[in-house]
Simulated scan of single mutants.
Amino acid sequence: MVRKSSWEWSRTAQTRKSMLQAAREVFSEHGFAEANVSEVVARAGSSVGSLYHHFGGKTELFLALYEDHQVAHEQASASSVAKAKKEGVADPVELLIAGARAYLAGAWERRDLVRLFIDGDGPPGFELIRRTRGREWVRQNAVLLGAGGEPLDRFTVAVLTSIIGEAAREVATSDSEDEAQEVIEAAVTLIHRLDPLRTLNHP
């Protein structure tokens, strides 16, 4: 078996990155259905063969873009929660809010992608992937909040997660960063008003 040199790995990573950036532009401008693979590779300075080699096709390219976007959200939120813990924050709701702030900041930074993925114009099966990811997000928030397994607990966590998700939509469609920040603060205020720790059963 021939091993790839570090230069070859670097070139492969750069090719993938260039294609994803080009795909981000083309999908954001045209949507999934109207996006053309030839336009993606032209912008990436690559070839159709190279795109199929790295991703397999337009659907896989779209899903890779979605996966990278979600990973960026998750890493930013996890890092923000870890930082808050290190600073001595122990209140689960405040930790949730720390993660939510990072998530919503990412929604503004990558607002073109948020708008793309909520638009409903994706490949077959994409909505199922989104819903599955959403359920996993609720589960992670339940762990962070130390929620029990009662129906009211599950519903409460789902509502809190929905608030953050809907806020992300509003942030992504805001006309300015100041307006986006107002939405973020409104979401935080709403979470505080719900006072979830009074509702949740802790095991």
Rank of each mutant, 00 (worst) to 15 (best):
A98Q: 05
F117Y: 13
T12F: 00
E34G: 03
Q14D: 12
L197P: 00
G146H: 04
S46C: 09
M19Q: 08
G165Q: 11
V81I: 15
E185K: 11
P151W: 02
A100G: 15
R115E: 02
R139S: 13
L61A: 07
Q181C: 01
L128S: 15
I184E: 03
H202I: 05
V143L: 13
V171E: 01
G57E: 12
V114C: 00
A187Q: 08
E67V: 13
E150H: 07
L104I: 06
A44Y: 10
A13K: 14
V183M: 06
S79E: 15
G125N: 07
S162K: 04
A172H: 02
N36G: 00
G49F: 05
P151D: 02
L128K: 14
A33D: 08
L113Q: 07
V143S: 10
V143C: 01
V81Y: 03
K86V: 02
I191M: 13
I164G: 00
L63Q: 12
L152F: 03
S18H: 13
L113T: 00
V26A: 05
T12E: 15
S80G: 07
L200R: 06
I164Q: 04
A64E: 14
R43L: 15
E60H: 11
A78F: 02
L160C: 08
L116E: 02
L144M: 08
F117I: 02
E150D: 05
S47W: 10
R193E: 11
D175H: 14
N141Q: 14
L200S: 11
Y52H: 15
I164C: 03
S174K: 02
Y103F: 15
K17E: 15
L128W: 11
